[in-house]
Write a protein that binds this DNA or RNA. Structure first.
Lengths: 318, 318
DNA sequence: TCAAAAGTGTTATCCTTACACCCATGT
DNA sequence: ACATGGGTGTAAGGATAACACTTTTGA
């Protein structure tokens, strides 16, 4: 146990990795580079007051995106992150909320639905068929692939809880745990690719659907999605993803896009209005077939009021 | 926006900082070094599989404490953390739960109640008098010290919400926010000490009580306390702090020590037993005056079952 | 007998969730 | 007419928090 005062000179490299999220037309979108195979990352800059402000400056300079909300996710320094070529890098990952810009600029950056990477996470139209068709058999095989009875039972229970099999309800917040389970079961291409030694799954053909990413970037994305799904329930961050004015249904669709499940409309509206999170602009929108909807604007003052107290969204079953 | 593959060679130093918590005799305790002025910290080691396992190995080697539960808190790299002598260090902080050992070993390490550092956070006997006597006047002065009316109102509201003045209830989870407010108000010695330029508070005599720490260590401790207070409500981590067998009242006292507020005894017991978190050992304890209490043991299997589903503790008002 | 702690039973209240229904507009 | 979305009323169920009370031991 040594004193902290004179810092140690273990020299290593550090980088920032950003999960930048927007919601466009009822789809949750994430900014990627390298033909959607990587999350944007950059060097750790020494010139800023704090890590947070450093990330903000870097993102805004590179992409011209106004970053509404920024939150640190996790710091990784796993030795085998990069596989055999492991160099000692500390990666500090951040979640950032913004709005998708038509021309997001430069360097082959592009936006994609996060369900491209995690197709099993979208339960807005019920559980996607691929869960029963692909994941469930693969997971069942994995659970049975061990001789010990007790381990089998514990694996099966874990599978059932995470994916909502047998009485269990779907908990949309467990994005990371589900990814890690699939990884452990050898159903994620990234898991197999890195390992030169063990050919983990004999059923390598039956890997889970979803676009793979380099290194552990898909894992970082899962962390970001999970954090955001948990956050929107008690913190008014959704509004960072909305345009200046919006209808209540648009807001609802945004929440649903993030949560990956539908919410009860009447209750949603009541809860939003009760809490006075929004105010009417006086105008209406006739864009979508049906009765014109009132337009609302976020009451920016609630950031001061509720940053502490918190807010509520009616997303059930978590 | 550059690709992540070839890591950047910005060389910097990295260290780990640990908030190690135990509960001994109804007091929440934290391990400190340097005459209780610093949290234990150590170099980032490259030899481990992950950051987490590196921290675990380091702590167990240095202190011989068995670490029950470990969780990453936050990563700091603020330029002015060390004041003028700023060297570029990334500090990765962790929360670790353990049980206090009589001889915690070496290097002037010692355990102290965390309320030594945050005396205003202990509301088990009601709001401590020092809040009304010292904090409230200081905060009031700070809120009035700005000319703008709107800013005054917003400051006063923030103060009231965080400290439970005027109708607001005390929310025990807001440890960090309260510390930051006091810091901003110039009532924390650490805030003044660093600044060579602005003598922030003319009422420097009236700084908040509580033992100061070096650099931002008290802030890191506040982060750890806040995280733990939030965690115990829905995750069965309390048991990491308990001996092998315990009475329900001991368990309750432990929860109360962490939360800094009392809980309703009958409801607490019902909730614990309903969830089958514990099982009777068959023995009883007559240690404390009164009817002998049944001894319980934590059902270790719930870690598998509820790591995902979560648990509940009846701590109200947050 | 009293203090201290262990327990049990019950109720009031609020929040969540859902169901049922009506309104306004475009095709 | 009917599809689509906007919007209101209300009730069932469960979780929470509190009150009142009995039991068992040691001093």
């Amino acid at each position: 146990m040594r004193p902290a005062a004179p810092p140690f000179k273990h020299e290593i490299a550090a980088e920032l990795i950003a999960v930048l999220v927007a919601v466009t037309g009822s789809e949750p979108r994430v900014l990627t580079i390298q033909d959607q195979r990587a999350l944007p990352s950059g060097p750790f800059e020494l010139a800023h007051r704090s890590l947070q402000s450093g990330l903000r400056a870097w993102v805004e300079r590179q992409t011209r995106l106004p970053l509404g909300y920024v939150e640190q996710l996790y710091t990784f320094a796993d030795r085998d992150r990069a596989g055999a070529t492991a160099q000692h890098v500390i990666s500090i990952s951040y979640l950032g909320l913004t709005q998708e810009q038509p021309a997001s600029g430069e360097h082959e950056a592009s936006w994609h639905s996060w369900y491209d990477y995690f197709p099993w996470e979208d339960h807005r139209l019920g559980a996607p068929p691929l869960i029963e068709e692909t994941l469930r058999p693969g997971l069942k095989a994995w659970a049975s692939a061990v001789p010990d009875r007790a381990t089998q039972r514990s694996r099966r229970q874990r599978v059932a809880m995470l994916f909502g099999f047998e009485d269990h309800i779907w908990n949309e917040e467990l994005v990371l745990q589900r990814y890690e389970l699939l990884y452990e079961a050898g159903l994620i291409p990234e898991a197999v690719r890195g390992k030169s030694s063990t050919p983990l799954s004999e059923n390598a053909a039956a890997t889970a659907p979803g676009t793979p990413m380099i290194l552990d970037h898909r894992r970082i994305l899962a962390t970001g999605i999970a954090r955001l799904r948990a956050k929107i329930k008690y913190h008014p961050v959704v509004f960072e993803l909305m345009p200046a004015t919006f209808t209540l249904l648009q807001l609802q669709r945004c929440v649903e896009a993030l949560a990956g499940k539908l919410v009860h409309k009447p209750n949603f509206r009541r809860l939003i209005e009760q809490q006075e999170l929004v105010e009417e602009t006086g105008e209406t929108s006739q864009d979508t077939g049906g009765r014109p909807a009132k337009l609302f604007r976020f009451r920016r003052t609630v950031f001061a009021e509720r940053a502490i107290t918190g807010t509520k969204l009616p997303i059930s079953g978590a």
